[in-house]
Amino acid sequence: MFASIMYKEWLKIRWTYLGGAVLGVFIVFEIFLNLGQIIEFNKANSVWNYIIFQKYLFYSDFQFLPAFIGLIVGIAQYFPEIQDKRLKLHLHLPMRENNLLLSMVAIGTVLLIIIYSFLLIGLSLVTLIYFPYEILVSLLNTVLPWIVAGFVIYFIAAALFIEIRWARRILIGVIAFAFVSMFYYYMGYDSFNKAIPVFTIIALSLSLLILLSGYRFKRGTK
């Protein structure tokens, strides 16, 4: 049954997902080309110096990519469910409601893990062409909060779409916006190294928010 839910979710998401992947590959490729150009037009040592001591992020174009992918995957997956209250069909499937809802989130999460890993591998390869592993490590440390933000936006999209009341949607939206904005607070690379475990735990706990929205959908849909 889970495989079948996976099939349905995939049918909903696939084009958006592949679109996100294409965009991601494009952005990683663009970072690669930019880097090549910067190194071509400046001396490599001054580029290193600029990156290490001026804290220039050559990968800053990547910043909003995970969030954007999380958002569009969330929309693609949950918007069709609330059109015509179609979620009723899903909840009517012969499984426990909470399991049905969490299955959806789990599938989206796994797909995001795959696409983010894939893009990070790409970004890592690009980095290692030009720089030693120290710079890659700091890149990963710095990109991680953006990735976590992608999951947050995805989980919030799930809770937001499934929610039936606008007042609650606005509440979740505003709080989540404030929360996500923290992930883009930038004080130089590695500045999230201490906070990221807690941020990650908070982000993961948000995956359960869909259950409250789902409960409210079930209890009060008209």
């Binding site: 709080i175 706990s205 948000l206 359960l208 928010l209 869909i210 259950l211 409250l212 409960y215």
Partner: peptide, 14 residues
């Protein structure tokens, strides 16, 4: 139970 947890998470988040 999980729904309660879900609400508590939302409260803590807020």
């Amino acid at each position: 139970m999980l729904v309660k947890t879900s609400r508590n998470i939302l409260i803590l988040f807020v």
